[in-house]
Design a protein around this nucleic acid. Structure first.
Lengths: 223, 223
DNA sequence: GTAGCTTGTTGGCACAGCGTCAACAGCAAG
DNA sequence: CTTGCTGTTGACGCTGTGCCAACAAGCTAC
């Protein structure tokens, strides 16, 4: 009667299928925390057998890893922004740019970067730290402070700490709305200026002496 | 031969048993992330049947909740510290005090507050946020800035954001040692000063005009 | 000392989630 | 249509968790 038998499932080329699964996984991981999203859920969402996830991504953790990677490293930040003017203005433009990129991801960003993800996994932490470093480098590049001094590790650590402030404040902004975008912008700008002054005391003079007084109680040349 | 039969297990009163289990659970949750610690492990560590955990604490998540509560709300911070002197000194003493208390907990603190714990659980987040608020209030009290203005929610949100910076930097200090205690101290002090100046612009004058110049580009009276 | 009772404690059952793997089936080539 | 490659499925075993009836430690009464 009916024409033979219409296929029960569609055969996709690996890249397409992988992308489709990643899509669904990203959405679900953005809605619920890691533990609350079962591989069965992802498979059902993608209209696919559960075993296929393991076939393409191995462990569930690996799939999550791919999601985080794709989330944090994808933004096309190849924009050409003027990085001139006094330090304060450059910082404010930099922060503004970052908030814009975050705003596009919204809840998923919060879920992934915050505690919403898998807990204390070394690899995941590594990815996030790496993403923080990338964002930090981008920010410093914006500031025109892309220096390569000896204690680079300390600078990265400082910027990762700053990233903690960034995430926390963005969290307050995106989720509860307990902070406005302006609040976040102000907070992050001021904090970043402070860090730049402390981490790169030798460049503080760029801002001119009219802004701040003699700072750097530990690393400063004076005192 | 042997005197009758010596009991296979000891009968403890509930409070004692509960405390003992909490002890073991705290230690294990400090060593490994939430998902890596099985209730069987905790039970074995406490020399107790696994079912007893559920009897006393219900779900595994509830046990973790108790651990977090006990960890974050216990420190006896009833010390009487002088809160006099200029703003900068008060801030530095405050930060120093906090770092001391954290140092006593060490790795467990990092594991609990960071991503090491359960992910994005509303209750857990609530506990942590509450603990952050407590710490924030204590800090502000140290600073002598225990104000009760109308926009208290905004202040708390600001301090929770600051707590993000605190945790991240402490993380760098405790774990990898990528930051020294002096680095953390400096970073947190400077940042806290900035926040205080932004959140409580009306109190900035306490520090005297000799320190900084006109700030608060958004909320300041000038400009 | 011993019988009885209270209740802290145990061990096994059922269930859900994950990883693995052999078998199946879409679909393009001959 | 037949063949073969390989994307895909479904079931199996394992681990971890929540639950609960049965058990026994230790106090009390006699």
């Amino acid at each position: 009667m009916s024409p033979a038998a219409l296929p029960r499932w569609k055969r996709l080329e690996p890249d397409k299928r992988r992308e489709q699964i990643l899509e669904c996984a990203t959405r679900l991981f953005g809605e619920r925390p890691y533990a609350e999203v079962s591989t069965t859920d992802i498979a059902r969402e993608a209209g696919v057998a559960r075993g296929l996830l393991n076939h393409y991504f191995g462990q569930k953790r690996d799939l999550y890893l791919k999601v985080v990677k794709r989330m944090l490293l994808m933004p096309g930040l190849e924009e050409n922004v003027t990085m001139t003017g006094p330090l304060r203005e450059r910082v404010e433009r930099s922060v503004e740019w970052y908030l814009d990129t975050v705003a596009t991801h919204g809840k998923t960003y919060v879920a992934v970067t915050g505690m919403g993800g898998i807990g204390a996994d070394p690899e995941v932490e590594n990815i996030i730290a790496q993403a923080d470093d990338v964002a930090a480098a981008k920010t410093l590049e914006f500031l025109g402070l892309k220096v390569e001094v000896g204690n680079d590790a300390r600078h990265r650590a400082m910027m990762r700490s700053y990233a903690g402030l960034v995430k926390a404040s963005i969290r307050e902004w995106i989720r509860g709305g307990t902070l406005s975008r302006e609040d976040v912008q102000l907070l992050l700008s001021e904090a970043l200026i402070v860090i730049v002054r402390d981490v790169f005391p030798q460049l503080a003079q760029q801002d001119g002496p009219a802004r701040g007084d003699a700072r750097a109680p530990k690393t400063g040349p004076k005192r």
